[in-house]
Write a protein that binds this DNA or RNA. Structure first.
Lengths: 138, 138
DNA sequence: TTTGAAATTTAGCCTGGGCTGTATTTTGAA
DNA sequence: TTCAAAATACAGCCCAGGCTAAATTTCAAA
């Protein structure tokens, strides 16, 4: 396996972590807003199982980084940038999820694993997953 | 995709992060120790591309959590627990890496992606990956 | 219209993982 | 043997992501 090494690879993984939560949040915000018309901090708090304060701080970072907007005591809305990220994250998530099912993994595991994997799958691997599903299923 | 939700799944993802770095470190320590006889902080610093101070603190956590031992100004060694974790991480890493290759992903991407994915793949998915490789190649 | 419950905010705390700068210890070369 | 360079440690800083407790605002029901 040629011993990985060479800071580059690993530092990419590290910096990925910085955006993982943001992606999880915008994805959740888009889902909730779509299903119930708007997304409030309390919805996210329930969704992720963390305190409302944690959500509030996370929303603050999303706003700071241009992914979302909000008003005091109001709901959260995604910016155009946030919507792009949410859409891309959802697409990746679905590909990974369907791929795991096609691989023969059970639904529950596919769901759990796809949430963990979606942030670490490159475009090239996504392509390979899609190719596999096309070959495999239709 | 049944909108994920339900704190359980996501909180698992969060707490995973706590052990990811530990796994990366013990895996790297095992590799370096195997190839050069011992592992020093400076080796890890170069391996991960982070400062020696960051490595020093990480080693402190490894020691605190029973994964490694060290003496002042001395090299780092894995405990039995650390060796178990390193071995398991390496095994997972290799399965994921070979699986990606079998999927048709290029070597470089397989290397990068496997580093990101290895911490998020469940036993069930690993089994499915192995089954795929056996069917596909063996 | 008032009031109480629900939601949000603010303050303050913790750990992890990153950094710089400075001191200390090892160790190899002169 | 001495001394400078390399490695390690220590002090102190930052931000992310988690928490509790307390203050504030909204909003619906009485």
């Amino acid at each position: 396996m040629s011993s990985s090494s060479a800071s580059g690879t690993h530092s990419r993984i590290r910096s990925d972590h910085a955006t993982e939560l943001a992606e999880d949040y915008v994805e959740a915000i888009a889902e909730i807003a779509e299903s119930s018309g708007q997304c409030r901090a309390v919805d996210l708090s329930r969704h992720f199982g963390v305190s409302h304060v944690t959500v509030s701080k996370a929303i603050g970072r999303l706003v700071r980084d241009g992914y979302a907007t909000t008003e005091p005591y109001g709901p959260v809305a995604l910016t155009a940038k946030g919507q792009r990220v949410a859409k891309a994250a959802k697409a990746r998530h679905e590909i990974v999820y369907r791929f795991l099912l096609a691989l023969g993994v059970g639904e529950k595991t596919a769901q759990t694993d796809s949430e963990g994997l979606e942030h670490h799958v490159s475009q090239e691997t996504l392509k390979a997953m899609q190719a596999f599903m096309e070959k495999d299923e239709g």
